[in-house]
Design a protein around this nucleic acid. Sequence first.
DNA 1: GTCTATAGAAGGATAGAC
DNA 2: GTCTATCCTTCTATAGAC
Lengths: 198, 198
Amino acid sequence: MATNTRERIVTTTAELFRRQGYNGTGLKQIVAGAAAPFGSVYHFFPGGKEQLGAEVIHVGGRFYQELVEAVWDAAPDAVSGVADVFAGAAETLRQTDYADACPIATVALEVASTNEVLRVATAEVFAAWIESAVERLSAAGIGRAKARELAIAIIALLEGAFVLSRATRTTEALEAAGATAVARVRDAILQGEGRAKP
Amino acid sequence: MATNTRERIVTTTAELFRRQGYNGTGLKQIVAGAAAPFGSVYHFFPGGKEQLGAEVIHVGGRFYQELVEAVWDAAPDAVSGVADVFAGAAETLRQTDYADACPIATVALEVASTNEVLRVATAEVFAAWIESAVERLSAAGIGRAKARELAIAIIALLEGAFVLSRATRTTEALEAAGATAVARVRDAILQGEGRAKP
DNA sequence: GTCTATAGAAGGATAGAC
DNA sequence: GTCTATCCTTCTATAGAC
């Protein structure tokens, strides 16, 4: 999988960030997990922990986006696509002992007011996620402005549900959030077709 | 305001946790901000940083709950109550340079997989918030099961919008999340009255 | 019970051998 | 360019003077 040293460092860091956050993860722990010599970090990332962090945010964000897109696009329509995304996230959370949720949310909150470089990196990832969701909702017949509002709400529901689910160690929040997201998407599509809700 | 040393330590820690998280905040920074001697931390909190953290989570969680309840209860009905909560959160975020959002979300994500004592503390806070919202939604005529699903969704929307808003330094996410929360509460109340949506 | 000094471990970062 | 040894700072925690 991770064949070279640089790759191993990035994937190991991504996994540690997801579970412990940025400040909770040390460079020594990273090189130990990646089975890499300490100096390799500064060889591949002269900017140190911050540069490594920025790359991990971008790579991790893109990877997760592609994962969600694959689940969404495999569904027959947008409503079941959204439902599948939340159901898949709940299943992953259960299987990983409530560890693997959003790869960048923990870091995003940690650095939002303390590190501008990393804050911008997380903002770029979220912007890409929003654009991805807007495209899919637009393709489902929802107007551009409404699609953007919905896309943001869906991502907020997912992120917030991750916070609640990881804290309480139940998937109830992901299920409640998923039901809400599905209902809103369904309503928006029906309204776009000029039909009222039953 | 904070008249004694112990109180100053707790309020200072709460503020630092909100902006930097648990791992990003050192005890030395806490005593410096609280103008307290270092030894006072271990005098009042023999369990060290963990015990202090648990108390800050509980106190901060209760404080924020009372703040939100005050805003919600000042509104004429549940729909505008929810709208006011999101609008107020957005205003606070703008006024504090996107620093003061949820007092425990950052810590909750940091400790969810690394510190069971603090994880339980955050879970207890979220449980209290959910119960508070369920009461208010039930009082608005929404059935208990639906009220719980909605309460969780509203809190998830708020938490997720905080993540997005702090990262992007805009309040667009809070507005989109607020609109979604309001729409869902309105629908639930109308359905409870046996009326369809227009 | 207020406060200082310091221990002992872990943090990020650097220099330089090979 | 792979790897080791080490520097300096910061961290949590403790001991003990006052």
